[in-house]
Design a protein around this nucleic acid. Structure first.
Lengths: 221, 221, 221, 221
DNA sequence: ATGTAAGCGAGACGGTACGTCAGGTCTTGTA
DNA sequence: TACAAGACCTGACGTACCGTCTCGCTTACAT
């Protein structure tokens, strides 16, 4: 995730542009190439968005080649997923504010802001869109990608349970789906700037959990 | 639905005043062709899904032609939106079971089932994916398409208010976003078969509304 | 060929643009419409050349409609042929300078100049190109159109025979084909500005005819 | 012929000095594909003529693809030109019968026959027609294509000069234009079957050259 | 030290779809 | 019945991007 070669000869140009092409380093995967491709992918997403994101553009930008990209990533979606996960982990560091509500609001606000102000949102929009085109990618999205995003929110609830703010973890499943689903909805419909809806949603979630998750007293239809 | 303007905008003035009459007499849009194209679009979605949905395929299937399709619909997304809205209105007729909870569960279950068992889900997935590719489509999605979907759920809450089951409409906004967001999340990640999550989500929503929407007693971060 | 309606209400705009649309004059062919279409065809050729010459453009320009054009002309080529013949007759009036050589040079120079400085050349280039696309048009070109163009040159030779400058008309066939063929070659390859080649060709023709057309003294292979 | 430059120009320097080596190693143009496309182009011309000649048809026939064709040929005209030049060189081999007249008649007869009995004529008709649609193609026709065709005839005259049958090369320019122009005229108007006109034209040319090209004794207009 | 096998760049390639253009026909309602 | 308006089908255009392939260079590592 970090360049570990201290003596690398990367040019001055910014992210994703290798100024000199370079050949193989032998019969092993070249980490510099790998890095350059990920950086280029991020840069292309940043500059051109999903609509302008083509494998050719990434290869050109990375001073690499399409076959090399396809050697390491199954397809466009896999590449975007990797670069998204890497960047989101770096950008969305853990927080602990001591209260469930505060932490959720902070976390979601940070997320929405990252989505809107970097290529992050474009990245996730790309992943979702690509997944609609290919069953394998959709499966990858469901079984691997989304669970990790869920974990990102779920941790907050786990901490609340640990410190006794929540009695148990029942209802957390629903709460997380509520927050993730709503966030995606706002992302995918271009409404990320409506940041003021975050607090009400968090409040609804927190209140729902606080009063217990029993549904026994609810009238059936 | 069924905006029949041939690609450029009609006048803005509403309220029954046609700002400009049709520029001339002459051949009118052929409703049979219109119908055939919509039917073909649905059929292609059904048979080939979003990945196999091409304007060529629709034109071929409708015994029509690409120029004719593009005369009436700006792009793929516009066509799918129209056919989706038409079909969803027909398939998801109103219900009234007398209780907010029951009605929401019924409505969502019906929706998820329609999505999964017809081309409906494929249609919405297509619309969302296409919107990520084109700003104009995204705008159309946000400003026209989603509000109508929201209305579909909101009506249920309005009825609950009318019959006194809910004190007021505060919090409905959040509740609707919760349900729509969650539904989209499950649709877009291929988890529509997990129908058992519907009830817990509805319960969370109903309970949240029942106990009032005040957040004054919630601890800030 | 001329507008014969003195009280017509043509606008001020130049050739080929009817400022107001007008409807049918009943169950007969409307000569004004006919005229407007021919004028529009010439105007479109002038402004956009063969590449930009479309039936839609002509209809629009004439404030007429495609069905009306197709009612009177079989296809694009037929329309261009008519407008070309009309204009060429008007532009290339007869001449009589008293000598075969002088008359041929004058006639050809006038023709090349008309081709180059008006839409005339574009018109003939269009006709030739269209004829390569459709056998019926090619037949029309061979059996009707070209003979008239040949006549245009042949007359000069006939006059030379009449005044005794030529002994007989033998060899005229070859001479005419030589001049027409060369002119077309220069037109179709975009070399009309090389006007200085006209005289040498005319000289070759005149000399060939003057010395008799007998080939008896020529060595066989 | 067979310019294999991928659409943009190579360096201008000629004479065996490659001004720039290939930017990189890597996959070379596949000669089989190149061959297949040329063959397919000829086959489509043969079977469907110019009217039925589409890039789609060629791509389909060659088991290739449109982008591949457009990678190597700027447009339809460029493709037809290459295939025409290749085939005409193969079909119209040099001849030497010892007399100017005999050689010209043989050469023209061979040409007209090849035009009429193979797709050759259709090819040239296509080239001429296409050139009327696009200025760049017209320029290519004038500056490169036609000079080569002229050379084909001019060689005959050069040989006649060499063996003393002609005093000098003056007048050859006119003679060649006469023969090419006439041949094109008969080709483009669908009169190739009138092979009997060849000899008179050749005779006119030969006689004109034999008696010198001086025009001093000709009366001016 | 040397052969081998992989990584790599360059980019050609087949395929599929895009959105547009033009030709020529058909339909509608007006004059 | 001629006409304008324009909808319509057909078929081709030239381009974009996908993911695969071939080529020949370079280099680590096993021999």
């Amino acid at each position: 995730m970090q360049d570990t070669k201290p003596n690398e000869e990367r040019g001055v140009a910014g992210r994703g542009i290798r100024t000199r092409s370079r050949a193989s380093i032998g019969a092993m995967r070249n980490p510099e190439t790998h890095r350059a491709i990920l950086d280029a992918a991020a840069a292309v997403l940043e500059e051109s968005g999903y609509a302008g994101f083509s494998m050719d553009a990434v290869a050109r930008r990375a001073n690499s080649s399409k076959p090399t990209i396809y050697r390491w990533w199954r397809n466009k979606a896999a590449l975007i997923m990797e670069v998204y996960e890497e960047a989101s982990e770096a950008a969305l560091a853990a927080t602990d504010t001591g209260s469930l509500r505060g932490e959720l609001i902070l976390r979601l606000t940070t997320l929405w802001t990252w989505w809107e102000e970097t290529w992050g949102g474009e990245g996730l929009r790309s992943i979702v869109a690509e997944a609609q085109l290919d069953p394998v990618t959709l499966d990858e999205l469901r079984s691997r990608f989304v669970p990790r995003r869920i974990e990102f929110i779920r941790l907050v609830f786990d901490r609340a349970v640990a410190r006794g703010e929540l009695a148990d973890a029942s209802g957390v499943e629903v709460a997380v789906a509520h927050l993730i689903g709503t966030s995606w909805l706002y992302l995918l419909t271009g409404r990320l700037q409506e940041r003021e809806v975050i607090a009400p949603h968090v409040d609804a979630v927190v209140k729902g959990l606080a009063t217990g998750s029993s549904t026994a007293d609810l009238p059936d239809r």
